[in-house]
């Protein structure tokens, strides 16, 4: 009982502290605008930002839809390719040796640098955005999953082998589940990057999307609308990260069970 109530207080504390901090910052920001310490046309107050958000809501949503679709298609493609490549690299040592340096090398090229090139090559449609997201998401997934495969318990694999398990059975029963935690940590980083990647690619050219909207409001010096978009982008990133967490809990039920602490533990 004691432990349970302690965990609830803990939970409340971990919401109250950051909540208060955010509230304090908002208050400070509001004061900066009200007393015109920073001129209103440069820094819109939180209130104005919310108003702009509400006013532009339907427009924002239509742009958001485009950005989200790009993010989703890009991320899913990136994950699939990343997973496949990781499997290939794990299965054949030659593939590992051949591809590993190349994969690291691709990460030294900044996304900002190739994005304009992609727009030049693939035009203003969805293609360059999706490709950029694939390039961004691919790396954390490959490295994460590969490390997961490689860290699988060799003794457990030997035991499976002594039971006559095939390569596929070893993959299915040991390597794949062992790689799941790494896969999800990779995915968490990836989804946040993916949204940013999509917006970045849209800046450089496109017909719709939050990035396109951003460049438009920037040109008209509508700072309140810009803040509203920034606000929306971070909310979307947070939501996606939360979604990954939910998915992880679903896929890995064994992580949630009570560990061997006291009463729940089966004693010999």
């Amino acid at each position: 009982m004691k432990r349970k109530s302690a965990s609830i207080t803990n939970k409340i504390n971990s919401t109250i502290y950051p909540g208060l901090t955010i509230l304090a910052i908002l208050l400070l920001w509001e004061c900066l605008s009200i007393f015109e310490i920073v001129p209103g046309y440069m820094l819109p107050s939180p209130q104005e930002t919310v108003m702009a958000f509400v006013h532009d809501f339907p427009l924002l949503m239509s742009h958001l839809k485009v950005t989200l679709i790009e993010t989703l298609v890009g991320t899913l493609t990136g994950i699939s390719i990343g997973f496949l490549v990781a499997c290939l690299m794990d299965r054949w040592d030659g593939a590992y040796k051949a591809m590993y340096p190349l994969i690291v090398l691709t990460q030294t090229i900044p996304a900002v640098a190739i994005a304009p090139l992609l727009v030049l090559w693939f035009g203003y449609q969805m293609m360059p955005k999706v490709i950029l997201i694939v390039l961004i998401t691919f790396f954390p997934i490959v490295i994460g999953v590969l490390d997961g495969f490689r860290s699988a318990d060799q003794d457990a694999i030997n035991l499976m082998r002594s039971m006559g398990a095939s390569r596929w059975q070893i993959f299915r029963h040991i390597k794949f589940p062992d790689a799941l935690p790494n896969f999800f940590s990779g995915l968490r980083i990836t989804v946040a990057y993916a949204v940013v990647g999509a917006v970045l690619a849209e800046w450089l050219g496109g017909f719709a999307g939050l990035g396109v909207y951003m460049t438009r409001v920037k040109k008209s010096f509508a700072y309140d609308k810009m803040f509203a978009v920034i606000f929306l982008i971070s909310i979307i990133s947070l939501l996606l990260i939360w979604l990954v967490n939910v998915l992880q809990k679903r896929c890995m039920p064994w992580e949630r069970v009570e560990t061997e602490t006291g009463d729940r533990r089966e004693n010999l």
Binding site: D153, D155, A156, L159, S162, M163, G164, L180, M252, W254
Partner: peptide
Amino acid sequence: TTGHVSYMLQKDLLLPYK
């Protein structure tokens, strides 16, 4: 030849996700 006798080690090697 393998597969005739079974084997058990000090480490239980139970898979944590099953």
